[in-house]
């Protein structure tokens, strides 16, 4: 069975979307073609995920959907039925912040902050697959995330710093 086929049989009106968001079961009514971005921000009040361009160019709305990095502005709700979503609000670490978030603070990888949630999620997706990336791999992994403040150097530094910290302290959560 294709996931979600039951829930949307009655097309035409809103659907009841069932999600696992940052480990918590959530339900929200929305139209099937609503953007996951709007479901998160407006339906669930999770405004950490940002809207930049709204056309899949900038990466500000990046989240992990069933563990996979996506632009939430390009995902219709109907394709997220019964999915697990990780947003910036779900990141935690031993000291409160996740090591990636700490590294962004320390390296100066954040200025205005609009791109930061997407950057952190893209970096998290990278580090789960490739715990010890070189600079080229970091830059490739962040190539779909635009930042208009930092010039990227400090963001790349932050990800390298987080990778080193995570390597000494176990796998990323």
């Amino acid at each position: 069975m294709n996931p979600g086929s039951q829930a949307v049989r009655a097309a035409g009106g809103p659907i009841r979307l069932r999600l696992q968001v940052n480990g918590h079961r959530r339900e929200v009514d929305c139209f099937p073609m609503a953007r996951l971005l709007d479901v998160l921000r407006e339906g669930l009040g999770l405004t950490g995920t940002k809207e930049g361009c709204g056309e899949g160019e900038c990466g500000a709305c990046a989240v992990l959907l069933d563990g996979v990095l996506v632009q939430s502005c390009l995902v219709p709700a109907v394709q997220a039925q019964e999915a697990s979503v990780e947003t910036i609000e779900g990141l935690r670490g031993p000291g409160g912040l996740h090591p990636l978030q700490e590294a962004f603070l320390e390296a100066g990888g954040t200025q205005c902050g609009i791109c930061t949630p997407g950057m952190v999620l893209a970096a998290l997706a990278l580090l789960r697959e490739e715990p010890d990336p070189d600079e080229a791999a970091i830059r490739a992994a962040l190539a779909g995330n635009l930042c208009r403040c930092t010039g990227y150097v400090r963001i790349v530094d932050a990800v390298a710093r987080a990778a080193a910290r995570l390597a000494s302290g176990g796998p990323p959560s």
Binding site: N2, R35, E55, L74, P76, V78
Partner: peptide, 27 residues
Amino acid sequence: LAGGTDIMVLLAAGRLPPGKYLSIRGL
């Protein structure tokens, strides 16, 4: 509707024709 990476861009821009969409993703 497969990955949505083109269709959803049109939707947000107000240029996607209203109508019926069949999400074949995951088949």
